[in-house]
């Protein structure tokens, strides 16, 4: 709040226009933020449009990664099969379950935040209820959402721990990025994915604190949805990486 105020102050000295410009939004964006469960298909972009530029871009790159892996695997299949036997499938599966669980927590958190934002809007629009009452009613769900986000973060932490145990085992067994082609992909793909997990965990902490401090309106909902979209993408990429690296025979 304070920041935006300052920014607006700086703006006026630089003679910036304050009218909304249509050029700043692209056609994909629909400003309608009604309940997706209630509105029909084709109305609601979860989060802001920008996060989808990033998420789809990232998915494009990982799609390229997967394809490149499948191609080189086909050229030297014995090496890949032999190397794969030294991976521990249980770690991979456990991590898949952890990320799925954390995704579910995030879905529930988004649902909570959405409910409280909507009820807030309803309360404000009806003249009978004044701020005090609305605040009291919305404080509960946002606390629960914060707890859900914290649980999601803990699942991410669990993922990280399993990953670190796994890397440690491999490295102490003398298997590194230069061991062979399979392990090159193993380290680079899981490493880049792990980087995404770390960024996602940072996002979850940020959202958790934000939600705990109180949800003021639609802009907060958009923020939570954007973060959730990113976290689900992290889950989604692991869903493909798990069979690709650990299971395929």
């Amino acid at each position: 709040m304070n920041e935006s105020g300052k920014a607006a102050e700086g703006r006026t000295t630089h003679e910036r226009p304050v009218v909304a410009s249509p050029s700043s939004s692209i056609t994909l964006c629909t400003s309608d933020k009604s309940l997706p469960d209630e509105c029909s298909a084709g109305e609601h972009v979860p989060g802001e449009v920008g996060i989808w530029v990033f998420v789809l871009g990232d998915m494009l790159v990982f799609g390229l990664f997967f394809t490149v892996f499948a191609y080189y695997r086909g050229l030297n299949i014995d090496l890949y099969l032999q190397s794969q036997t030294s991976l521990n499938q249980n770690y991979g599966a456990l991590n898949t379950l952890l990320l799925l669980l954390s995704s579910w927590f995030v879905v529930m958190a988004v649902s909570d935040v959405r409910n409280s934002v909507n009820s807030n809007v309803l309360k404000k629009s009806s003249p009978a209820n004044k701020d005090g009452l609305a605040q009291q009613n919305t404080s509960h769900p946002s606390k629960r959402a914060a707890m859900l986000l914290a649980l999601a973060f803990l699942c991410g932490l669990g993922f990280g721990l399993v990953k670190i145990i796994e890397y440690t085992e491999k490295i102490s067994a003398g298997i590194t990025i230069t061991s062979n082609e399979f392990f090159m992909y193993y380290y680079i793909f899981t490493g880049l994915h792990f980087l995404h997990v770390l960024i996602g965990m940072g996002v979850l902490v940020f959202l958790c604190l934000k939600v705990r401090a109180g949800i003021s309106g639609e802009s907060d909902l958009v923020l939570v949805e954007s973060g959730a979209t990113f976290w689900h993408m992290v889950d989604l990429l692991w869903i493909v990486l798990f069979p690709l690296l650990y299971l395929m025979k």
Partner: peptide, 19 residues
């Protein structure tokens, strides 16, 4: 795996109700 991905997209990422 890709059927799972589609479920994650449609139900978790709410692509189901997207444009």
């Amino acid at each position: 795996a890709f059927i799972k991905v589609r479920f994650v997209m449609r139900y978790f990422m709410e692509v189901r109700t997207a444009p």
